[in-house]
Design a protein around this nucleic acid. Sequence first.
DNA 1: AAAAATACGATAATAATAGTCGTATATGAG
DNA 2: CTCATATACGACTATTATTATCGTATTTTT
Lengths: 159, 159
Amino acid sequence: MVKLNRTTEYGLIALRYMSDKESQGDTSVTSARELSDRYGLPFEITAKTLQRMRDTGLIISAQGARGGYTLGRSLSELNVSTFLELMEGPQALVSCTGSSLTSSSSCELQGKCEVKGIMGDLNDRVKEFLTGILLTDLAEFKNIQPLKVEVKESEVHAI
Amino acid sequence: MVKLNRTTEYGLIALRYMSDKESQGDTSVTSARELSDRYGLPFEITAKTLQRMRDTGLIISAQGARGGYTLGRSLSELNVSTFLELMEGPQALVSCTGSSLTSSSSCELQGKCEVKGIMGDLNDRVKEFLTGILLTDLAEFKNIQPLKVEVKESEVHAI
DNA sequence: AAAAATACGATAATAATAGTCGTATATGAG
DNA sequence: CTCATATACGACTATTATTATCGTATTTTT
């Protein structure tokens, strides 16, 4: 049916975490390690995901020791459609619909296919719908329990 | 982002074709061969897709020579959400959301994950939205040019 | 009996996604 | 100025999901 890929999930976790930090007056940056430790995400992928999010401007990076990421734009103005496109690229709902970057997704039924219009219409509608939903509109994005830092043994003496 | 699989496309082609036939007073059944020939679809997959559609009641089969398929329910009462679920199963928008049949899609962050609620909410909204759209609402589902039967040589003497 | 069609399970091929590895670069702290 | 920590980035591998193929059985009309 309709499905998000996992890195989008990781990205959402990251955004929500940073947003929460910010709203608590915590101005510290968030490192890939911090996220992967806290949520049990694979570090390498978390790091790579954050880099892609930086490329698209969702977050801002600071290199070097004590480096990390902070929010790059106001989440209360970011809609779901835009978020998904930033995370996964301008993919269409269905393969035969244009506006796709990958050449492999161009339909071989070209010309013959009679559902292109139907699919394109559906795609447009879903996109329009998602454009109307802001990330911060989604239930539980805000109003979660304050982040309790359950520090690991290994981290204790490191601080 | 959000994507349909190809067999759903095939299924949509089949439904539209049969619906169109019906509205023209053509009461003949539609065979897998007929569809695969006309639209250049792989026969085996078309056949299998039609079988799954029969399993879910979308279409009705008639076995044997001169057998084939006819519509099993009124398309003007079939919404997109239901259609997608019948074609692809009750999959969720995102892996960590429940209601999935495959055990592999259960999230390993169980308990820790804090976006489950967000994703579940988004999933519910998209589903509700799709429920409000009927297949026949979609542009170009109806009002297409009458099917011109460009009969192939091989079919001519068979009729 | 033969031909045409669906029924169905097993398996192979392909594509998409997820994850790993190695190395380079930047920066703060001592 | 060196070390530790963190991002940056490309190439590669593994895993999973999807798509397609194959072989055989069954049903029904002629």
